[in-house]
């Protein structure tokens, strides 16, 4: 039997790695992947607490989060492609039009 604490620790680690990746990487694609990783960490918590409380609400919501993540990836990748067409780069440092 898996203990709740192990699940929480794994999801905590995944979220931390995701947030570190968002902060330190320059490539917009990898930043998007790190956001996906953070959503998955949240999903893991949803499922763990669904089992802990004996109701399926958590699993249903994890499925909804998965759908939202798919929509987010579609729009995000379209934005990256449009950005690449306009500015010829996907490095977030080079996209500083609003810097003033």
């Amino acid at each position: 039997m898996v203990s709740l604490n192990a699940v929480l620790l794994v999801s905590f680690g995944l979220f931390s790695i995701g947030i570190a990746g968002v902060l330190i990487r320059r490539n917009a694609l990898i930043i998007l992947m790190c956001v996906e990783l953070m959503l998955n960490a949240a999903n893991l918590n949803f499922i763990a607490f669904a089992r802990h409380s004996g109701s399926v609400s958590g699993q249903a919501f994890a499925l909804l989060v998965m759908g939202f993540a798919a929509a987010e990836v579609a729009v995000g990748l379209a934005l990256v492609v449009a950005l690449y067409r306009k500015r010829d780069t996907v490095q977030v440092d080079d996209i500083n039009l609003l810097k003033g």
Partner: peptide, 28 residues
């Protein structure tokens, strides 16, 4: 859980997916 308790979020998700689809096509 999905079709009895959380039917409304599920339907809203379908609308959001449609909007994301159209938005991705327009952006790209």
């Amino acid at each position: 859980g999905l079709f009895a308790d959380y039917l409304l979020p599920f339907e809203i998700l379908s609308v959001i997916l449609l909007v994301a689809l159209v938005g991705a096509v327009v952006l790209a």
